[in-house]
């Protein structure tokens, strides 16, 4: 489902004398449907960078990034938009929403974007919020005022609202208590069971060992830096 081949990435800092920073070389990865692969490596080794490239958030300098039949490294913006709408989900570490929008609608939005009827979308959102222990009295409020842990759970609910065939998870269990951590892992296991291909970053080793089938160490893709 997800296939990354020989991807490289550099950052060029035009406003700092045109400094070129190579951050990845020869990045390769393959994830089958129903499989969960963890990216590991020291901080700054390029885990998030690789994940962002798969999502199309960072531009790859070279290589192929296939998600289904779309090469994210070459695709037009509208192809990536369609991919994100229908097939590729992403749970980032930070929730970014329009202020004022109710939590319930924030979670339902990916479904509304797919044309799901409002009632059905809200029903699905309600179920997820309840499962992740967001008190119902908060559903009508904007999540911008929530605590960090609550925001993250809203973010996870949003990421799991639609059954994406491919999922990217950036620290999904960080800063969660035991009960909620258990719920998130169950969600991941259910996604795997329905055949989702998942790439994740987990600092939570216990969680990683439980849900991930394989580990890919991105340190192997880190270019040798000339200091």
């Amino acid at each position: 489902m997800i296939s990354v081949e020989n991807v490289s990435k550099t950052f060029t800092l035009h406003n700092q004398g045109g400094t070129v920073i190579p951050v990845m070389e020869g990045g390769s990865l393959s994830v089958a449907p129903g499989e969960c692969v963890a990216l590991v490596g020291a901080s700054g080794s390029g885990k998030s960078t690789l994940m962002r490239m798969i999502y199309g958030n960072y531009l790859a300098a070279s290589g192929r990034i296939m998600v289904g039949d779309v090469d994210v490294a070459q695709a037009e913006p509208r192809e990536i938009l369609a991919l994100r709408r229908e097939r590729l989900g992403y749970v980032s570490q930070f929730l970014r929403v329009v202020p004022r929008v109710a939590t319930l609608d924030v979670v339902a939005e990916p479904l509304l974007a797919l044309g799901v009827a409002r009632d059905a979308a809200r029903e699905r959102a309600s179920a997820l919020l309840a499962r992740l222990n967001i008190p119902e009295r908060l559903w009508a409020l904007s999540p911008t005022t929530f605590s960090g842990g609550e925001q993250q759970r809203v973010n996870i609910a949003r990421g799991f609202a639609h059954d994406y065939p491919a999922l990217l998870l950036d620290e999904p269990t960080a800063s969660l208590d035991a009960a909620n951590r258990e719920q998130v892992m169950a969600l991941i296991e259910e996604a795997k069971a329905r055949g989702a291909a998942i790439v994740g970053i987990f600092h939570d080793v216990e969680a990683r060992d439980r849900v991930c089938d394989r580990v890919v160490d991105v340190t192997g893709f880190t270019p040798v830096r000339v200091v």
Binding site: F11, R52, N57, L59
Partner: peptide
């Protein structure tokens, strides 16, 4: 520069965009 909104804002390629974002 053109591209996906989040890509242009998070990984700007052109000097001017980098200045704008920063």
């Amino acid at each position: 520069e053109t591209g996906l909104t989040d890509q242009v804002l998070d990984d700007p390629q052109h000097a001017y965009t980098q200045l704008l974002v920063s």
